[in-house]
Amino acid sequence: MTDVQLILSAQQGDMKAFEELVCRYDRQVLNIARSFKNNDDDAKDIYQEVFMRVYKGLKNFEFKSEFSTWLFRIATNVCITHQSRRRGHESLDREFDYEDDKSTVADFIAGESRTDSSTIGADIMAHINKAVEKLPPQQKMVFVLKYFQEYKIREIAQIMNCKEGAVKKYLFIATNKLRDHLKNVF
């Protein structure tokens, strides 16, 4: 069945059709949430919120865009607002992080006890994730969708409901910030 057929059935209350729609796209939603939050519990919360919004909003879906675009737009909005909600609680920690965190990936690599390559790989990942975490939500979302989920800039613009130029700008600023943060690695 096509997405359109499934949506029409789901709009009539067919739960099997709704489940099929969920199964088609929920991996990608969970992937986006995990890349964005870097935390399984947060990703699970986002997953629930996204699909509950889809469940409630599907009756009013008017096929003005692709279902997947609409779904991923909800997913990115939920990720960003989830981030914003947590920011209030984390603001003090974040300030502390910025001021206190002078370590670099090079420091990790140079550490005497960290000679195992997989440990070093994990440390690099942790450091990259930490740097990504510090980006403002919109820049972070563009970065995650582009680098970790490999969407095209055109697709990101559709998902985030903005112009391609804006996506390029976010990407440029985010990448420059990350390069700056990780420059001691090179």
């Binding site: 969920v22 969970l30 870097n38 699970k44 629930q48 509950m52 469940y55 690099i124 990259i128």
Partner: peptide, 26 residues
Amino acid sequence: LIDSGRQGQNDERLLAESRMKLMRNI
């Protein structure tokens, strides 16, 4: 360097748990 930071695929347990919880919530 960024390539090495790519997340792995979702583990199936996480996906299955999320699906089950969603159906319960619905």
